[in-house]
Design a protein around this nucleic acid. Structure first.
Lengths: 135, 135
DNA sequence: ATAGTCCTTCCAGTCACTGGAAGGTCAAGG
DNA sequence: CCTTGACCTTCCAGTGACTGGAAGGACTAT
């Protein structure tokens, strides 16, 4: 199948599939006319990529996962290590966002939000105290 | 003061301060020798920017906030609207991350993580558990 | 005079795509 | 046979928000 069908089947834009080929993630075969061709194994890899990316793995992590995926003899431990690390990153990010939410929500709550020009949000943002952590 | 001191006082790298000038956020004065000079008002704006950015406002949102900040007659409502919108984005992002965390954590939990090659994480990432594994 | 630090501008790179231009290929319809 | 339109190709540029580095001018201290 050509790239258009591969795009439909994998759920990735053609542009992205070509990009993944550029960076050596999924190499397509070529027809005589220069068109890329894809088979079921290609699609499988592309779907794998799509899912991994949507779970927040970076492209280089995906490359690792993919090579682990293709290695029949790899241990599950090496995969688990990658996934666990990613999980820690996610937890950290959630915590960061919660702190940020807290700060901003406090500012929003104290703002009366009417036509008067004084605004606790802007005062809070101007952050007069020294090098205060946003969290 | 020169850019180095402004950097120290604001907590932003000199590079970033120059960048903010490039995109018209904070324009410095110039000495005869071409050096940028900053006063207390500049520093205040830079710190405002640093804090707003750290709260996740985009640069264009910061530009809006800054112009609201400088407008003595703006209503607090317009600021509150911006901040509330940002708050909603943060909430959305937290929810997304939680879902993602859930998925990944399930995968990690079901993986025994030893030397055996079978790994539920990779199976989960391939996203088609009923498919034959073509690799 | 020299060393060292600070400043300037400009160009390139980051990440993971995305958009668009210019042009080749293919199947269907008139 | 010709045209239309969909699909494909490559290459170049842009995104956001910086960051790194090169080349060179300015200032300070010795």
């Amino acid at each position: 199948m050509n790239i258009g069908e591969a795009s439909e089947k994998s759920g990735l834009p053609s542009k992205t599939i070509r990009y993944y080929e550029d960076i050596g993630l999924v190499l397509a075969d070529r027809e005589d006319n220069g068109y890329r061709t894809y088979d079921a194994a290609h699609i499988h890899k592309l779907r794998f990529l799509k899912r991994s990316r949507s779970l927040g793995f970076g492209v280089e992590e995906c490359r690792q996962l993919l090579s682990l995926y293709e290695d029949k003899h790899r241990s599950s431990a090496s995969v688990k290590a990658l996934a666990t690390h990613r999980l820690e990153e996610i937890d950290q990010k959630i915590e960061d966002l919660k702190g940020l939410r807290e700060t901003l929500s406090t500012l929003v709550k104290t703002c009366h939000g009417d036509d008067r020009p004084d605004c606790p949000i802007l005062d809070g943002l101007s952050g007069t105290p020294d090098d205060q952590d946003p969290f």
